[in-house]
Amino acid sequence: MRKRNKFFMVLGVLTLSMILYFAFLHSLIRDHTTIKVPLDADYLIILGARVKGEIPSLSLQYRIDAAADYMKNNKETIAIASGGQGPGEDISEAEAIKAGLLAHGISSNRIILEDRSTDTVENIRFSKKLIPDHLETGLAVTNDFHLYRAKLIAKDQGLNLQGLPAETPLVAIPKSYLREYLAITKYYLVTLFN
């Protein structure tokens, strides 16, 4: 009986600790989506997400829409469309982003393709090499749940990016946030032990 009570007490403490930790991460994520988006950024880095054949996933479509709205109101801002081609994708994520921006009426001469990256670290690293030298202020464009980690990764790469949050599709919220809590935890651990 004592062992059983001790087991449930330890289990309860671990569960409560995990809930508090995820609540802490959630507050960090939310803090980075409520910061005012600066006007007249020189460039956007639009981070890729899944493409089904040639059709952007809803998450990626929301990123494209947010970037296009910003570019319509900030006529000098250029976009770096970032993302390679993964399994089940007939075109690269960058090409899907470009097609989406063109459909919004954004001129192709304002779009640079980065179509080799396979994850957020590579999105930022490879995109950084494509930023024209005279441009200074940039925004990372991604879904709200992803923005905090994207900005941390950008800082690691020597880029001080602000964020332009796109909505997260309602149906994807539970899965996206849970995966992001785990990805942030992995980022913390890798950073700690490197």
Rank of each mutant, 00 (worst) to 15 (best):
Thr77Cys: 15
Gln157Glu: 12
Leu101Lys: 10
His146Gly: 03
Asp133Val: 07
Lys75Asp: 15
Gly105Tyr: 14
Ile112Ser: 09
Glu114Pro: 05
Thr120Trp: 14
Ser92Lys: 03
Ile124Thr: 04
Glu122Gly: 03
Asn143Glu: 03
Ile124Gln: 13
Ser107Gly: 14
Ile124Tyr: 13
Glu93Asp: 05
Ile112His: 11
Asp133Met: 13
Leu102Cys: 06
Ser117Arg: 01
Leu147Trp: 10
Gln85Asp: 01
Asp133Lys: 14
Ala103Leu: 12
Phe126Thr: 06
Glu76Ser: 14
His104Ile: 08
Phe126Glu: 12
Val141Thr: 07
Lys155Ile: 09
Glu136Asn: 15
Arg116Met: 03
Val141Glu: 06
Thr120Glu: 03
Ser82Leu: 05
Ile111Tyr: 11
His134Phe: 15
Leu135Phe: 10
Ala140Gly: 11
Lys155Trp: 15
Ile91Lys: 06
Gly88Asn: 03
Arg125Met: 14
Glu95Met: 09
Ile131Asn: 09
Glu136Trp: 14
Lys128Thr: 01
Leu152Cys: 13
Lys98Gln: 02
Leu130Gln: 07
Asp90Thr: 06
Ala79Phe: 12
Gly100Arg: 09
Ile97Gln: 05
Lys72Glu: 11
Ile131Ala: 04
Thr137Gly: 14
Lys98Glu: 08
Ile78Pro: 01
Ala79Met: 10
Thr137Asn: 15
Leu152Ile: 01
Pro132Met: 12
Gly105Lys: 12
Ala103Pro: 06
Gly88His: 05
Ala150His: 06
Lys155His: 15
Lys98Ala: 02
Asp133Gln: 13
Gly86Glu: 07
Val141Leu: 06
Glu95Asn: 00
Phe126Leu: 04
